[in-house]
Computed example of a mutant assay.
Amino acid sequence: MSANGRDFYQEYEVFSSKKNGAPMQYQFSLLAPNEEIALVMAQENFMRREPAVDIWVVKRSHIRKMTQEEKESLNRLDNKDYRQTSGYGYLKKKWRHYEQNILDEKEILSWGGDES
């Protein structure tokens, strides 16, 4: 590709939503000379494969990435494993044990004895 070709085409990222109110999901990248043609290309490429109610086309250069320093700030200094759902795996077993010990209606009625 010539220097002029690289300047002519820009990279775009395509996102879509399948239903109203559904989150946008990343689909693919494409090269286009401008936003209008990028949107038409995204519609043509995407709509052939599956339905969509909305499509976003974003120039890649407009997407801001985190710096390495910002990424490092995401690491937690303290241990807060309790925030992770994997830490609650024991609850299913505990709940099953609890349910097995619950008295059912027949057992409770059997305690009544005779009222004759």
Rank of each mutant, 00 (worst) to 15 (best):
L30T: 02
L109G: 03
A42V: 01
I55P: 05
L77F: 11
Q43H: 11
D104M: 04
M41T: 01
W111I: 14
R64S: 15
Q68D: 10
E107T: 10
S73A: 14
F15M: 06
S73D: 10
E13K: 09
Y9E: 15
I108N: 04
K92L: 02
F8V: 00
G113T: 00
R64F: 15
Y9Q: 14
I63C: 13
V53F: 02
E36W: 00
I55Q: 05
Y9S: 13
R96W: 06
K59Y: 13
A42T: 01
A52N: 04
R6W: 09
K80L: 14
A42K: 02
S73N: 12
G113C: 02
G89K: 06
F46V: 00
P51I: 04
M1H: 11
D114N: 08
N75T: 08
H62L: 10
A52M: 01
S110G: 10
L31D: 08
R60W: 01
V53W: 02
E69G: 07
Q68K: 09
K92H: 02
Y88I: 02
L74W: 12
Q68R: 08
F46E: 00
N79P: 00
E115G: 04
M24G: 02
M24C: 01
Y90W: 08
E13Q: 10
S116D: 13
E72W: 05
K19Y: 07
W56L: 13
E70G: 05
E44W: 11
K59S: 12
G87N: 11
R49I: 02
K65W: 08
V53P: 00
Q27C: 13
M41I: 00
S86P: 01
K59Q: 15
A42C: 04
Q25N: 07
M41Q: 07
E69R: 10
M47A: 12
I55K: 06
G113W: 01
V40S: 10
T85D: 15
E11F: 01
W111G: 11
L91F: 12
E107P: 05
Q43E: 13
A3K: 06
L31C: 11
G21F: 05
K19V: 05
A38D: 01
S2P: 07
R96K: 09
N79S: 11
D81Q: 00
E107G: 01
I102S: 03
R49E: 04
Y82F: 12
Q10W: 13
V53S: 01
Q10P: 03
M24W: 03
R49C: 02
K18G: 05
S29R: 06
V53K: 05
A52P: 02
I102F: 06
R6I: 05
E70A: 13
K106L: 07
K106R: 13
D104V: 03
G89L: 03
F8W: 07
M41A: 02
Y90T: 03
Q10T: 09
S61T: 08
N101E: 07
R64H: 11
I55G: 05
E13S: 06
E13D: 09
E36G: 01
Y90K: 07
R60K: 15
R48L: 09
V40R: 15
Q43K: 15
K65I: 04
